[in-house]
Computed example of a mutant assay.
Amino acid sequence: MKEEILGVQVNTENYDELIPKVFQNIEEKKKSLVVAINPEKLMKAKEDPELKALLNRAEFQIPDGIGVIIASKLQKGNITSRVTGVDMMDRIVREAARTQKAIFLYGAKPGVAEKAAQKLLDTYPDLIVAGTQDGYEKDTRKVIETINQAKPDILFVAMGSPKQEQWIEKYRDELHPILYQGVGGSFDVLAGNVKRAPAIFQRFGAEWLYRLLKEPSRLKRQMNLPKFLLEVFSRK
């Protein structure tokens, strides 16, 4: 099920409901893109019709951000829990290990994807990592060839949004994987290069506050949240 927030479709399901649907598509060889939806992205999409169209073409739009939950409540919708990009990746990896689906990590600085892959293998010893590729390789044909030779079922792309989603959409018909997810800075988090917000911040959907306390320069970006909620409220 999906509901519309500022013209963008967003899934209403939680992790346990989404994962079977995602893996059913893998079994049926239906290529699928998982994209994280947050207030900042929705505000950008409001001004950028191409971005809005790209987000709406994705097969799965996960509600990543407490602002999306609040917006759904404001419009009496059905989104009740966050599905964050990094946790969705973890759930997909966990299920991939269980079902023996191979993954590939593409993006980030040299060495980061390899380190992230090793951390995942430490957590999920049965996981099949088909390969990794850093994001600094300029030859796109070489990247595509490397991925296709590895034959993964799932491709995680860490380039930042919306660049990663644009790259996936442009090349996915040429690529072997069935499931795609743009994961932003998740490789750095997995590799231990970037610390995630403490559990208490995660539990209350306040990771944005933790990042703001750590980086006050993010204040301008965080002002998107009240603007976003005001926009949703005005459309009620």
Rank of each mutant, 00 (worst) to 15 (best):
P198E: 14
E4S: 13
E137M: 02
K214D: 01
I147Q: 12
N14F: 07
K170R: 15
F23W: 13
D126S: 12
I128W: 05
F156G: 04
V189R: 04
L121V: 12
R98P: 01
H176T: 03
T140S: 02
I19R: 13
K101T: 09
L229C: 07
L18G: 14
K138E: 07
T123D: 14
K46I: 11
K21W: 11
A102Q: 05
T84W: 07
A97G: 13
I92H: 08
K151M: 00
K115D: 13
E95L: 09
A97T: 05
P152A: 06
P162K: 01
W167F: 13
Q118T: 11
V86Y: 08
N193E: 15
V93E: 00
K109D: 05
V8H: 07
E114V: 13
S217Y: 06
N193F: 14
Q9C: 03
L179Y: 06
K214H: 05
V157D: 03
L55R: 06
K151F: 00
I168E: 02
K101L: 03
E145M: 07
G182H: 10
K170A: 13
R203K: 15
D48N: 05
I79C: 14
E174P: 01
T132P: 04
L230N: 00
A199M: 07
L121G: 02
Q149K: 15
G77A: 08
L230E: 07
D173H: 08
M1N: 11
I26K: 04
M89K: 01
V22C: 03
I147T: 12
T140D: 04
F201K: 08
A197M: 04
A197D: 00
K41Q: 08
K119Q: 14
L51M: 12
D90C: 10
L121A: 03
I144R: 03
L229S: 05
V129T: 09
E231G: 02
T140V: 09
Q61F: 09
E50N: 08
D139C: 02
A97R: 04
N25P: 01
D90M: 09
L225K: 05
V83F: 12
P63E: 03
D64I: 15
L219H: 01
K101N: 15
Y136D: 07
